[in-house]
Simulated assay, not measured.
Amino acid sequence: MVAGGNSKSDISFAGTFASSAFAACFAEICTIPLDTAKVRLQLQKKGIAGDAIGLPKYRGMLGTVATIAREEGLASLWKGIVPGLHRQCLYGGLRIGLYEPIKNLYVGDNFIGDVPLTTKILAGLTTGALAIAVANPTDLVKVRLQAEGKLPAGMPRRYSGALNAYSTIVRQEGVRALWTGIGPNVARNAIINAAELASYDQVKQTILKIPGFTDNVFTHLLSGLGAGFFAVCIGSPVDVVKSRMMGDSSYTSTIDCFVKTLKNDGPLAFYKGFIPNFGRLGSWNVIMFLTLEQIVTQELAKGWLMV
């Protein structure tokens, strides 16, 4: 998937994990304001018709970013960055680091030719599910911290920071609470991971067959945008359910959250925050894949990531 040519098969798992974790963390730092806007839009519920108080507070990606910055300060846009980086170190490193080994496992050692798209999707589903099963606590804390800003003025905040959030959740809700929303989160991340990695892999493979195109930054840019678009289109409904379950403890299960969201807010609620979500995932994928490709290309040349 990265660093075109036969040399990519010589990259060690540790090297791929480290490179992927760094690239994912860099992309996270650059795009978390858009993720904060997305979470706020997804958690926002429909107001009562005709009631001025019920008018939506957040409107659109840029409007939401501006509202948060104006009312809570610019730093609030980076709320959840610490658990976000925790998440990317674990989730980003594992899902990308395991992708090539799992894909090769599915096709077998003697396979020759282009790997089928279905196999790429299956590999993406597998690594996404495995990685988020490990990283779910970091995702939960990140969403909880991002949701803090929507509490009414004067109401005490539940958490003073990421480490405090981990300990408070364990103390008040139990260790199992760290895996709240694991069902929709596994579904969401398996689906989005498959959409991202398989589409990036497939788009890049297709582009490289077009005369005049080479394995360069422009190809990586187009492939990253394609990966982000497919990921948002496919993953938005489960992403909304995941965010609502993690940010609001009133839901008893994934089905309960899905049914209540559909009943109270309508089917379009599952695509709430679509624009900021695409802005987030599209830019995130471009930054992450560009960074990863450059790291792997440079380090392969130095021989630091070899088996």
Rank of each mutant, 00 (worst) to 15 (best):
G4Y: 12
I11E: 02
S19F: 12
S20K: 03
A21R: 05
F26K: 07
A37Y: 03
L43I: 03
Q44F: 04
I48L: 12
G50V: 14
D51Q: 10
A52T: 07
P56S: 14
G60P: 06
L62T: 15
T64K: 14
A66H: 08
S76E: 14
S76F: 06
L77R: 00
C89K: 04
L94H: 06
R95F: 02
G97Y: 00
G97M: 02
G97I: 04
P101K: 12
I102N: 10
D109C: 10
T118G: 15
L130G: 14
V134I: 03
A135L: 01
A135T: 00
G161I: 03
N164D: 15
A165R: 02
A165H: 01
Y166C: 11
R171C: 13
R171A: 15
E173H: 15
R176M: 10
W179A: 04
T180E: 13
P184S: 14
P184Y: 13
N185Y: 08
R188N: 13
S199I: 14
Q205D: 15
I210A: 14
T214N: 06
D215C: 03
L221Q: 04
L222D: 03
S223G: 00
G224S: 05
L225A: 06
G228Q: 05
F230Y: 10
A231E: 05
V232P: 05
K242P: 04
R244D: 12
M246N: 13
G247T: 10
G247M: 10
S250V: 11
F258L: 11
G266E: 00
V286N: 09
V286H: 09
F289T: 07
E293W: 07
V296F: 09
T297E: 08
K302I: 02
G303H: 05
